[in-house]
Design a protein around this nucleic acid. Structure first.
Lengths: 342, 342
DNA sequence: TAACGTGCCGAAAAGCATTTCGGAATTTTC
DNA sequence: GAAAATTCCGAAATGCTTTTCGGCACGTTA
């Protein structure tokens, strides 16, 4: 036993150690420690002191084995950056007290085989549920229905409507962005976004059109699709200004694109937000708070999303898991790129 | 039992189900499945078929309880961004086959109390070891020595030399940066970095001085300390050029700072890398590959670091855990900010 | 005083897989 | 054909905790 090497630890103490030390049976020790009331106060005190003395902590493995519940969830992700999964993880931890529930994080790296491996490992470890996190909001293949635990899809919904998915409301986000620009007095609004094959691009565009229609406006030019990069933001802005110099507001499909937009606007001598207001998407802090000016953006409330996902998993243990896609509200974070600061 | 709600799963099948179906004892079934050789080929086939039929997978809880090893590690982090912890997690997963080892990820959010909670929970779950990940390379408080499992500190070393810590070799990184600039023909090199209270800033500066000394050069001006932000990079560059217009190379303490440096150089009409070569630190892809030009940077090899940390944890199960701080080599990633592309 | 409650405690089962060891059945050897 | 040696299988213990239920001792009531 290697454990012996680690001083102070030795073999972790067990309930029977406590019982022996306190001079009671194992059953009584258990009851005393767990606050059951079939034990005399004096006995309880003796047991608790003994437990304290040898710093006993119950073995969760044995507990889980008996209870049939482990208090763990698997988080199966293919989000290499960790940009989505970390807030979701934090939300899941929050949904219960810290330390109540523990999360196995598995990174499938976009590989279906690796995903299967991880899935199997998680099931063997008897997780109480699984949260699947994708890095796009496009539907992803379902893990299937013949699983012994509830599965919730977060961020990327499942392609099977019988699964439960929780995804940010991109359409509402697009609309929110436009409404904000309109309320800032802008009326000639363009939209520069990423790869049109992404549902996120299409959904946000729908929202942008909703917002414009509600304000009685039309989009300046066509929506500009390409890739989710600063490079494209820069190039697109140059093209946009050449064709539509009258533009006074730009809704961007991501913060990265918005950074590129800001760069080119600056290069071409347009001041932000005075001449052109710019709004990003994702509220990726490191990008949004370091730009000139700082970037107003739409935040997907990922932590809230993680909390919801975890709650759904655990309520599904007692009830039936619902199905369908829940759209999580998003929120606007206002910074200097739409409203002048000081 | 809520499990019954989830079709196909039902109650997970146990070894005794398999044994009953195959018409053998539990012991025989176990041996057949685990490839032990005290079982007749025909019997083994029957058992395997039965296991397949009811899709049996052994309960890791029971297994771990018996073996005294769980095949899990706890990753205790306070890295809210996940920028460090995700590569380290991936490295830890890699160190063994996917699915061999699973990782409990706990985010303490920089709160010592929450950290203690998580630590206790991890120990109760009988993890085989713990990797502590910090978000700075400054020494952090030790978790102590009276723990029943080995602990390895990754990225942020422990303040107790009796612990094992694995941290990137910042000094070598600073030196590497200068050597690269020198090999690009630069001789008037300045250094803009972050908060001087950070060990990372001090260590990288030491390396920068090493490199300069080796090349027979001196730093242009004093090293410029402030914060790890783009803002500071921009401001510092303006100051630097005003005082030392002859500068032809800038080593930055982070990629964020470097982004700011690039911005100001561009604003002031200096071309990169022709007039001034710039090198960042951290190789944070989203920043480094989206700048104009793309940013040469020092990569801390975090995935390798995670692999090493996980290996140390598991070899410590059989042997004694070594102690002290291991410095992990870093590497140079060359992009357009030091060498013209195309 | 006999019958009955009540309050505490302990033996034992359950949860699941692994491993040891004894024993039954078969084959080999003399 | 009997004794010895294999070969294969199964009962039971192990790991640790929780929970049920039987029982002991004490005090209470008719």
């Amino acid at each position: 036993m290697a454990r012996v090497e680690h001083p102070g630890g030795g073999r972790a103490s067990t309930l029977s150690d406590v019982a022996k030390l306190a001079g009671v049976s194992i059953a009584t020790a258990s009851k005393a420690i767990n606050g059951r009331d079939e034990v005399a106060p004096a006995t309880r005190r003796r047991v608790l002191e003994a437990a304290e003395q040898i710093s006993f902590t119950p073995n969760q493995l044995a507990r889980s084995l008996l209870a049939g519940r482990t208090g763990t969830v698997g988080l199966l992700t293919s989000d290499l950056e960790g940009r989505f999964v970390i807030p979701i993880l934090m939300g899941a931890e929050d949904a219960f007290g810290a330390g109540q529930v523990n999360v196995f994080l598995c990174d499938a790296r976009g590989d279906a085989i690796r995903e299967q491996h991880h899935l199997k490992a998680l099931l063997n470890r008897r997780v109480d549920g699984i949260i699947v996190v994708g890095r796009q909001t496009d539907p992803r293949p379902s893990l299937g229905h013949d699983l012994p635990v509830p599965v919730v899809y977060a961020y990327a919904p499942s392609d099977d409507p019988a699964d439960l998915s929780i995804t940010p409301d991109n359409r509402a986000g697009g609309r929110l962005a436009v409404e904000h620009l309109v309320s800032c007095g802008r009326s000639r609004i363009a939209h520069i976004t990423g790869d049109p094959a992404y549902a996120a691009a299409q959904d946000r565009l729908l929202g942008v059109r909703d917002g414009l229609r509600a304000a009685g406006l039309e989009l300046v030019g066509e929506p500009m699709f390409s890739e989710w990069s600063e490079h494209w933001g820069r190039d697109a802005t140059a093209m946009l200004l050449a064709q539509h110099p009258e533009v006074d507001g730009i809704v961007c499909g991501s913060d990265q694109i918005a950074r590129g937009v800001l760069d080119t606007l600056r290069d071409l001598g347009r001041s932000v937000p005075e001449d052109v207001a710019v709004i990003g998407y994702d509220n990726w802090e490191v990008l949004a708070t370091n730009s000139r000016p700082e970037l107003t953006s739409i935040d997907a409330n990922l932590q809230q999303l993680g909390r919801t996902a975890a709650k759904r998993v655990f309520t599904a243990l007692d009830d039936e898991l619902r199905s369908g896609t829940e759209y999580q509200p998003v929120r606007l974070v206002i910074r200097g790129s739409t409203i002048p600061r000081r």
